[in-house]
Nucleic acid binder design. Structure first.
Length: 819
RNA sequence: GCCGGGGUGGCGGAACUGGCAGACGCAGCGGACUUAAAAUCCGCCGGAGCAAUCCUUGUGGGUUCAAAUCCCUCCCCCGGCACCA
């Protein structure tokens, strides 16, 4: 009588043993090929929910698979620990953000350990610790020295709830990505990173094995478009302004419509607005600007909103045809895109059409729509192709050629030039909050902006800050923190009080894992050389633009400083799907968070790991439903019995012996292939089938003891990545050498995996009528003869003429009859 | 509106390059074991029909000897982008 499978007894025991033996710690003198398997590290929110398991367990299975395949696998874990929730907890419950965060780290570390993963905890990284953020600050200074960090006054996204500015990427549908409060605009002096310098490189993903979806999203985010910059001569509306009022530059992707301009529009924030506004228009203009500034992003971005604007009183001249057109301001024109000014061509642009309709501006057709009878009024903007009309010397040209020709003409006259615009904006990294890495800069009245010298890093967060609701960052009130001396002249100076966007911390953590305790540098170059780039990076698709984009920018910037020697950090990217609860995103506020601890307690980590992977394709995610988990619990119990109950041979049978051997090799082939493609659900289905085959073989007792043992061992090896504790326990109980996780992944033999007979499908006119067991390499003639001999086939062919015979070797024969 | 992914039994899903639709599991039904229950094991399990057979992969059409798979139309769901000139 064998004892029962009790995961709660087995799992902690093996976890303790693995830790004591340092089974998963990496050694740099290891001669095996390296494999860096990275899972996105969790934010320290407090508890691990089932979604975390869904991210962590399958990636651990894959890392274990790679280990068994002979790779030296680095699969580290850490915590993204700076950020607003910690500070909110401080304000709400009076607990220090550090205390709150580290308590969460401790709890989450315990939960993560219960997964039974191969994480090397000696490499753990926590981004809010000075030993880590010292180097985040160091990177800031490096970027500043390289001219990639700058301070600028600009209209920024302000979240009134978080009381901090947001990067463009953090504004989702006009709302804050974290708290969903509507975002407002503010003019503030802030720190930016020049990510736009890398726009072209960031939209390319050469040689990267990434989901098409993510590559497209990133390319769209960069939003490169090629067009033409055209300068219009300006005639000031203010007659008091003396001298040359200058020109307005616009960016357009449709230079072919340049003869159709009937008005111009500037963004309300455009610097020219103040100087061109006519005195009698000033009040109206100021009022409009005031209104626009009060609008939230949501209102401003609303497509349904009528396009409103105000006439400035100024006129501009289209140099191509010397036509004089009025200049407006309107908030459908964005300061941040192109030149912040557009030419209005109502006949050929939908937005301009709507604007012209509203303000009764003239329209001029310059691209002939199909069947156009020279009528002036169109029912809507015509944006399709056509021949150019009303366009002077370009009349009759196809508009696509005209775009090129007009640009050449403008360039020759000095009125314009080809130009490229991007949607991508520079990365705003300042945050007016406490719980982040302080920006290591000093303001000196004498010497100006000074970086904190490297020897003075880290700039520590003061522990005794006060957390008050509604206020600015506690750092701005902290006199001791604020006051410092200038590193250049030694005089009195002030510290920068902004902290960095937490995405800054997560942009380089994968480098820190390579040498987590390096104290003289952010990382040991030799170690980074050895491990980077990352072979597979797994995590949620919600980081498609923010984190992945910033991390790529970081790597490219460091490369250009000579600090790294590769172009891309993540060679293969895989996004697991989202686990929902009652078809809603899990969140603490909704109270629908599924905690895995109870399942682990009752059924064991191995069962939870297996179930998570079995429910469907990993990339698909799904709604959490525990009704099927018993199936996996049963399966692991079957494996337990299978491995421990002694085998007794009854009557040896050569055919049975060969059949099981064949099944074993076929299963190894299937499981290995599924593993490589991360198809864990079908991988487990294959193992279940194999286990039931083994059960049948035991019942029959027709195979040798040797083959039985070999087959059971193959099963244990193949299930080891999925159910590491169970496999280790059974491996030990069968008297095999510790540890199963140091064994090689089983190999299959194509010859042994080959089927002796295959079912040949017999079709008549494409419909299945019979199946015959034949040798896989049966010749067509023979197959046809056998097919014709089948009674079931004859029932459908008798009296009919066979007009065609299609033979697919090893699969089917199809006899096509004339009806 | 644009881009991407998807729609298969009561449910989660499988089907590799166009070649047996429904693997594997859940739920359900029947049986064995048991005084009984749980657990375990075995069998059945898309629909219609006594049967041969026919129907069935969101809808309608097409290509093909053969379509869940390829092409076109429409409907629905999920994700992303959305005044980007």
């Amino acid at each position: 009588m064998i004892d029962k499978y009790i995961p709660a007894e087995i799992e902690p025991r093996w976890q303790a043993r693995w830790e004591a033996d340092r089974l998963y710690e990496m050694r740099s003198d290891d001669s095996r090929p390296k494999w860096y398997a990275l899972t996105m590290f969790p934010y320290t929110s407090g508890d691990l929910h089932i979604g975390h398991w869904y991210a962590m367990a399958p990636s651990d299975v894959f890392a274990r698979f790679k280990r068994m395949q002979g790779f030296n696998v680095l699969h580290p874990m850490g915590f993204d620990a700076f950020g607003l929730p910690a500070e909110n907890a401080a304000i709400k419950h009076g607990v220090h953000p550090y205390t709150w965060t580290m308590k969460n780290v401790e709890n989450m570390r315990r939960q993560l350990k219960s997964i039974g993963a191969v994480y090397d905890w000696s490499r753990e990284v926590v981004t809010c610790l000075p030993e880590y953020y010292k180097w985040t600050q160091w990177f800031f200074i490096k970027l500043w020295e390289a001219g990639l960090a700058y301070r600028a006054k600009a209209p920024v996204n302000w979240c009134p709830a978080c009381k901090a500015v947001l990067a463009n990427e953090q504004v989702v549908d006009g709302s804050c990505w974290r708290c969903e409060a509507p975002v407002a605009r503010r003019d503030l002096e802030q720190w930016f990173f020049r990510i736009t310098r890398y726009a072209d490189e960031l939209m390319r993903h050469d040689h990267l094995d990434w989901p098409e979806r993510i590559k497209t999203m990133q390319a769209n985010w960069v939003g490169r478009s090629e067009g033409t910059e055209i300068a219009f001569a300006l005639e000031s509306g203010d007659s008091n302004t003396s001298g040359n009022p200058g020109e307005i530059k616009v960016f357009t992707t449709r230079p072919d419509t340049a003869y159709g301009v009937t008005f111009m529009v500037l963004a309300p924030e455009h610097p020219l607005v103040a100087s061109i506004t006519a005195p009698d228009r000033r009040t109206a203009i100021d009022e409009y600007i005031r209104q626009v500034r009060m609008r939230t992003e949501i209102e401003r971005l609303s497509v349904d909103k009528e396009k409103d604007g105000v006439f400035t009183g100024a006129y501009a001249t289209n140099r191509l045809n010397d036509e004089r057109v009025p200049v407006f301001i309107a908030d459908y024109v964005l300061l941040s895109y192109g030149t912040g000014a557009v030419m209005g061509v109502p006949a050929h642009d939908e937005r301009d059409f709507a604007f012209a309709k509203r303000y009764n501006l003239p329209m001029k057709v310059v691209i002939a729509p199909p069947n156009w009878q020279e009528e002036e009024a169109l029912s809507g903007a015509y944006t399709g192709p056509g021949r150019m009309v009303n366009s002077g010397m370009f009349n009759g040209t196809i508009n696509t050629d005209g775009a090129r020709d007009i640009t050449k003409h403008l360039e020759a006259q000095g009125w314009g030039c080809p130009s490229i615009s991007y949607k991508l904006r520079d990365w705003l990294i300042s945050r007016q909050r406490y719980w982040g890495a302080p920006i290591p800069m000093i303001y000196c009245k004498q010497c100006g902006l000074q970086p904190v010298p490297e020897r003075d890093l880290p700039v520590l967060l003061p522990e005794d800050a006060e957390f008050r609701p509604g206020g600015d960052s506690p750092l701005t009130y902290h006199k001791v923190f604020l006051k410092t001396t200038c590193p250049n002249c030694g005089g009195q100076a002030q510290r920068e009080t902004d902290t960095m966007d937490t995405f800054m911390c997560s942009s380089w953590y994968f480098l820190r894992y390579c040498s987590p305790h390096c104290s003289e540098a952010a990382y040991d170059s030799r170690q980074v050389q050895q491990w980077m780039p990352i072979d597979i990076y797994t995590g949620g698709a919600d980081h498609a633009v923010m984190h992945l984009f910033y991390a790529r920018f970081f790597v490219k910037a460091l490369r250009d400083m000579g600090l790294l020697s590769f172009n891309e950090p993540f060679l293969r990217l895989f996004n697991q799907g989202v686990i929902t609860c009652q078809h809603q995103k899990m969140s603490k506020s909704k109270g629908n968070v599924v905690n895995p601890d109870d399942y682990v307690q009752m059924l064991g980590a191995d069962t939870v790991r297996a179930y998570i992977m079995f429910v469907g394709p990993w990339e698909q995610g799904g709604d959490w439903d525990d009704s099927g988990i018993s199936g996996l619990s049963r399966f692991l119990n079957r494996v337990w019995t299978l491995a421990l109950e002694p085998y007794k041979i009854k009557n040896w049978d050569e055919a049975a012996e060969r059949a099981l051997q064949r099944t074993t090799h076929q299963t190894i082939r299937r499981v290995s292939g599924d593993m490589e493609r991360l198809h864990f659900n079908t991988m487990l289905a294959a193992l279940m089938e194999y286990a039931s085959q083994l059960n049948k073989a035991r019942e029959t007792g027709g195979i040798s003891e040797h083959l039985w043992n070999e087959s059971v061992q193959a099963l244990l090896l193949m299930i080891a990545p999925t159910a590491p504790h169970l496999a280790e326990e059974l491996w030990a109980r069968r008297g095999l050498p510790y540890s199963i996780h140091s064994q090689s992944w089983p190999k299959w033999d194509e010859v042994l995996a080959q089927a002796e007979t295959i079912p040949l499908l017999i079709q008549v006119s494409g419909k299945l009528r019979d199946k015959l067991l034949v040798a896989p390499d049966i010749a067509e003639d023979e197959a046809r003869t056998m097919a014709m001999a089948s009674a079931k086939v004859q029932a459908h062919t008798s009296g009919k003429e066979i007009v065609q015979c299609i033979y697919v070797p090893g699969r089917l024969i199809n006899l096509v009859v004339r009806p």
